[in-house]
Amino acid sequence: MSEIRKLDLAWLGLVLLSVGGAALGGRPDAGLGVTALVALVMGIKVRIVCDHYLELPTATRRIRRAMYAFCYGMPIVVILTSAFGDTLARLTGALI
């Protein structure tokens, strides 16, 4: 498959994931499972942009690792703060 074809499919995948991900917003009863799903969709979309738009697989190791750390860190933090929000509130009580 050509690089341009992959890029076009990446865009199509991103559009579908965005519309599908938005549909999760209609659920008022979101538990940890839905939060994890939202985080997963976020992680997949960001990875697609990194790989096909930014072309990170061809970038130097330092750039690639730093960007992936940020991109994977966010969905993980979403899940962790949802699961351990009370602990975070206790630890940061002095800031508020």
Binding site: P28, V38, V41, M42, V46, L54
Partner: peptide, 23 residues
């Protein structure tokens, strides 16, 4: 420029679920 624009995309892909989707 392309690299900057795509990074701005990535930031939005994080902001969007935090404010519009995540309950």
């Amino acid at each position: 420029f392309a690299v900057y624009w795509h990074t701005t995309d990535i930031i939005w892909l994080m902001i969007f679920p935090l404010f519009y989707v995540l309950r």
